[in-house]
Design a binder for these strands. Structure first.
Length: 662
DNA sequence: TTAGGGTTAG
C-alpha cells in the first residue's frame, strides 16, 4: 500500500498535504491515508486540484457523500451490505474507484464480487472492464479472458483501453502467441491499435528468444497506422535489441530517437550498454559511458554492473576486478551479483582457481547471498570434473539456503548425479516436488543421462516419455544413446518408441539413427516396424543393413507384406539377389493359399530386370500343380526371354570394349 | 478516464 504514496509524494507534496487536510474534513472518522491515496491517485491532477482545493471551490454535498461512501465501502468488513446502502448515491466512476482500490490492495474475491454486483445493477463502463481485466488478469488469465468474452457489446470489445488491458495480461503471463492471435482478431473486429497497444505487444518480445525479427515486423506496422514511437516504446525496443545482442540496431534506434528530439535516459543507455556485453565490446562501452556522463547522466548501480558484464565478456579480468572494487566502494556490491558475474566469467574461461578466490573473498566480506554464488561454483566445479567438491558444496547449499530456484536445484541435482549420489538425487527430486518447482528441459536431461549411466534404462525411458509429454524438445544425442542402451537390454519396442518420438518431433535426424533402430528392430523381430523404417528411409540405409533386413523379413516377416517389402527395396535402388527371391518363393510354396502373391511376384520380376534362377525355377515347377500349370509355364517363359536378353546385353558391352581396344 | 516500457548474475 505504500507504493502509490511513495510514488505520489515527491512529485506533488502539496497535494499530499491537501489530502491530509481533506481527511480531517471528511465525515468518516476512520478514514486513512491509505484510502485517500488510493482514491485520489487515480484522478488527473487537474481534477484533484479543482475538486479538492477547498479555498477555490468548496465540495458539493453530493461529492462529499460519495467520497465518504467510497471509503466506507472500502473499509467495511462486509462491503456488499454497505454497497447496498449506498447503491443510489454512487455513480459508476465511484464504483470503479472502489474496484481499483480492491485491485491495488489485492482483494481479489471482493473485486470479483463487486464486479458481479456492478454488472447485475447495470453499473459498468469501459473503464470498469479495463481495470477489472487488468487486476483479474494478474491472477488468472482465463478469468480475465472470460470477462472480456462476456462483454455483450461488440463495439466495447474493440475499445482500445479494454483491448490493451486484455493484451497486456496475456503478455504478462507469457502467452505471447495467443496475444498476437487475439490482436489480429481484434483488428479484424475493428480495433484501432494505438501506441500503447503496440508497446504492450512489443514488451512481450523482450525476453523471448529470437523475438527480434518479429518485434521488428511490429515496428514496421507503425507507420501504416499513423503511430509514432515515443520514449516508452524506444525503451522497449532497445531492451529487445539488447536481449538479442543486436547492438548495431540498438545504436541506430538511439540515433533515431535523438533525431526525433527525444533524450535517451539511463534506461535507454543501459540497454545499449547491455547490447555491447554480448561481444564484450568494451571500447564502445567506454565511449558510451563517456557520452552519458557528458550529457549529465550519472551511472547507477545497474549500469556499473552492466559495464562489469561487458568487461568480463570481453575477457578484461584485471579491469573487471578494478571495477568490482569501485562498485564495492560505491556501496554497489552489497549483494552477490557482481561477484557472481565475475566468478562465472572466470570459471568459464578456465580460471577456476581465480573464481574460487573471488568466492572465498566474497564470504570473508560477508556479502549477502541467496545461493547464486554457490550455484555458480557448483556448476564450475562440475565443468572441471571436480565432482566430490561440487557435491560437498551442494550439500552446504542445501543446509544454508532454504529457498532454491529451478536453476539451483538443477545445478545441485547435476552435481549429485555426476558424483553418483543416488540418495541425494532422489532427495532433490522430492524437494522439487514439495516446492512445486516443475522440472525443465535441463532437469530431464540431467536425470535421463544419469539413469542411463546407472543402467536404469527403463527408468530413463519413462523419464523421457515424461519429458516428451511435457512438450520439451528431445535432443538427438541423448535419444540416440538411450535407443542404443534400450536395444542392448532387449527393450526393442521402447527403443522404437524413442526413435518415433524423435522422428515425429519434426526435425531432421542423423541418418545413422535409422540404421541403428533397424538393427534393433530386426534383432527384436519387430519386422513390421522395421519395414516402416525402411519404407521411409531406405535411401539413407546402407546396403548390408538392407540386405540383413530383407533376408530376415523373407524368413520371418508377415507373408502378406513380402512383395511390398521387395518392391520398396527395389524402388530405393537396392538390388535384390537370388537368395532373397528364393527365400520369398520358398515361403509362398510352403503356403499355397498365398498363391496370388506368388504369381504377382513372378509377374513383377521380369519388368524390373529380375528373373528366377534355375534352382528356384525347378522348385516352382515341382509345385506348379498348386498354382496352375499353364499360368506358371507362361510366366516362367517370360522370365526365360528376359534372362536371355539380359545375358546378351551383359556380353555386348564387353564385346564392343574389346573391339574398341583393337 | 480506463491501457504500455526499460538496465545486472547462474
Amino acid at each position: 500500500m505504500e507504493t502509490p504514496l511513495l510514488g505520489f509524494e515527491p512529485r506533488c507534496p502539496h497535494l499530499f498535504i491537501t489530502n491530509s487536510r481533506l481527511s480531517s474534513s471528511l465525515p468518516h472518522p476512520t478514514l486513512s491515508v491509505r484510502t485517500l491515496t488510493a482514491t485520489t491517485v487515480v484522478k488527473s491532477p487537474a481534477t484533484v486540484v479543482a475538486a479538492e482545493a477547498p479555498r477555490t471551490k468548496p465540495h458539493s454535498k453530493s461529492f462529499l457523500s460519495r467520497k465518504s461512501a467510497i471509503s466506507e465501502i472500502e473499509q467495511s468488513p462486509d462491503f456488499l451490505s454497505s454497497l447496498q446502502r449506498f447503491a443510489r448515491v454512487l455513480k459508476v466512476q465511484d464504483l470503479n474507484v472502489i474496484l481499483r482500490d480492491f485491485g491495488i490492495s489485492g482483494r481479489w474475491q471482493d473485486l470479483i464480487q463487486l464486479f458481479d454486483w456492478m454488472q447485475q445493477h447495470g453499473k459498468v463502463s469501459d473503464s470498469t472492464y479495463s481495470s477489472c481485466i487488468k487486476f483479474v488478469g494478474a491472477k488468472s488469465v482465463s478469468k480475465a479472458l472470460e470477462i472480456y468474452q462476456s462483454i455483450p457489446d461488440e463495439s466495447t470489445k474493440t475499445n482500445v483501453y479494454i483491448c490493451n488491458s486484455v493484451l497486456s495480461c496475456l503478455v504478462k503471463n507469457g502467452k505471447l502467441d495467443s496475444c498476437i492471435k487475439l490482436f489480429d482478431q481484434m483488428k479484424r473486429d475493428g480495433l484501432k491499435p494505438d501506441v500503447v497497444t503496440y508497446n504492450t505487444l512489443l514488451a512481450g518480445f523482450i525476453k523471448v528468444k529470437n523475438g527480434f525479427p518479429k518485434a521488428m515486423d511490429l515496428v514496421g506496422e507503425l507507420p501504416h497506422n499513423g503511430i509514432k514511437m515515443d520514449g516508452v516504446m524506444y525503451g522497449t525496443v532497445l531492451a529487445i535489441c539488447a536481449s538479442n545482442g543486436r547492438c548495431e540496431e540498438a545504436e541506430s534506434f538511439i540515433q533515431q530517437m535523438k533525431d526525433e528530439g527525444h533524450s535517451p535516459n539511463i534506461y535507454h543507455y543501459s540497454s545499449l550498454l547491455n547490447s555491447y556485453s554480448w561481444k564484450g565490446d568494451y571500447k564502445k562501452a567506454d565511449e558510451l559511458m563517456a557520452e552519458m556522463k557528458s550529457v549529465g547522466l550519472v551511472p547507477n548501480k545497474v549500469m556499473m554492473t552492466t559495464l562489469l558484464k561487458v568487461y568480463i565478456k570481453g575477457g578484461l579480468f584485471e579491469r573487471s576486478r578494478e571495477l568490482l572494487s569501485e562498485l564495492e566502494s560505491a556501496g554497489y556490491a552489497e549483494n552477490e551479483m557482481p561477484y557472481c558475474m565475475l566468478m562465472d566469467g572466470l570459471s568459464k574461461t578456465g580460471k577456476l582457481e581465480e573464481a574460487m578466490t573471488i568466492f572465498d573473498d566474497m564470504k570473508v566480506k560477508g556479502v549477502k547471498s541467496d545461493g547464486y554464488a554457490n550455484s555458480i561454483m557448483i556448476a564450475a566445479l562440475c565443468r572441471s570434473k571436480r565432482f566430490e567438491e561440487a557435491k560437498q558444496l551442494a550439500r552446504d547449499s542445501e543446509t544454508t539456503y532454504e529457498k532454491c530456484d529451478l536453476v539451483m536445484l538443477n545445478t545441485m541435482l547435476c552435481a549429485y548425479c555426476r558424483a553418483g549420489e543416488m540418495e541425494s538425487v532422489m532427495r532433490m527430486m522430492k524437494k522439487m516436488d514439495e516446492q512445486a518447482v516443475s522440472p525443465d528441459y535441463n532437469t530431464f536431461h540431467i536425470l535421463i543421462k544419469y539413469f542411463i549411466k546407472e543402467k536404469l534404462h527403463l527408468l530413463a525411458y519413462q523419464t523421457l516419455l515424461d519429458m516428451h509429454s511435457k512438450g520439451h524438445r528431445l535432443e538427438e544425442e541423448l535419444c540416440s544413446s538411450l535407443i542404443y542402451h534400450l536395444g542392448k537390454v532387449r527393450a526393442h519396442s521402447e527403443a522404437f518408441s524413442v526413435y518415433n518420438m524423435l522422428r515425429y518431433s519434426k526435425r531432421t535426424i542423423c541418418k545413422d539413427l535409422h540404421e541403428k533402430i533397424l538393427h534393433i528392430l530386426i534383432h527384436g523381430k519387430l519386422f513390421k516396424d522395421a519395414y516402416v523404417v525402411v519404407k521411409d528411409n531406405a535411401k539413407v540405409i546402407s546396403q548390408p543393413t538392407l540386405k540383413r533386413f530383407c533376408k530376415a523379413f523373407m524368413v520371418s516377416g508377415n507373408i502378406n507384406l513380402v512383395n511390398d517389402v521387395l518392391k520398396v527395396l527395389h524402388g530405393s535402388g537396392y538390388k535384390i539377389d537370388q537368395v532373397q527371391f528364393e527365400m520369398a518363393i520358398a515361403r509362398y510354396i510352403s503356403q499355397p493359399d498365398k498363391k496370388e502373391l506368388l504369381l504377382q511376384l513372378l509377374q513383377w520380376m521380369p519388368g524390373q530386370g529380375y528373373v528366377v534362377d534355375s534352382s528356384t525355377r525347378n522348385l516352382i515347377l515341382k509345385q506348379s500343380h498348386l498354382f496352375g500349370r499353364q499360368l506358371i509355364a507362361e510366366i516362367l517363359s517370360k522370365h526365360h526371354i528376359v534372362s536371355r536378353t539380359m545375358v546378351r546385353s551383359r556380353s555386348e558391352p564387353k564385346f564392343s570394349r574389346a573391339q574398341r581396344g583393337k
